[in-house]
Amino acid sequence: MQLRRQLPLMVVFVTALLVMLFKFFNFGETGKNVLSQMDKWSQVTSIVAFLLGPINLIRLHIGNVAKRRPRWIHSALTLVVIVVFTIVFALNGSNGKVTLWVVNNIAIQISGAIYAMLGFYICSAAYRSFKLKNLEATVLLLSAVILMLAQAPIGEAIIPGISKWGEWILSVPNSAGMRGIRLGAAIGAFAASIRVILGLERSWVGGSTAD
């Protein structure tokens, strides 16, 4: 039982240690080779594990169909599409003419259109939710309006020189604020990495997190 939890933690420790050891210290060609071998291994494991997602998804949809869950018919459709088009794409080649026609004109368009719906939502949010309730919201709104005018050609036609204001906001206050956030996040990421390597963060192996 103990080994089941300890072994993955040991693998994490050894892998991370090897990467850092050969990066921070100069072991000449040997160090370089070990690092490049680690990269290759990491790539190979990812390639071999590529079925994990599809198997999970197919299991989920088979479950939906078998148990007649709400909208099971859509799950059935997904399964049919997976089977039919895997055969079609395999026969035509993963980058064959038919494959690319289907990918470019159907898959990419549907996905793009779903994502583009955010454009409609952001307009309705601007109308319904963006209220000047306090000074912070006013500052935020002013900055947003200047940027919107600065980035569209019409802004320059209404207020000449506004694109320069927009550039200044982006490159000075915005850039500095984002740098503050990034640096804070980086410190957090380093701390999290160290905790994982030292085995203090164990939730992913089914254990509790140590302080």
């Binding site: 307009c123 109308y127 319904r128 963006f130 209220k131 309006v145 919107m148 569209a152 050609p153 802004g155």
Partner: peptide, 17 residues
């Protein structure tokens, strides 16, 4: 189109407020 879209959003912001 982007220009008119931005003007539309700014109008929405004003009307909403």
């Amino acid at each position: 189109a982007q220009s008119l879209g931005h003007m539309m959003i700014i109008t929405f912001l004003i009307l909403g407020n």
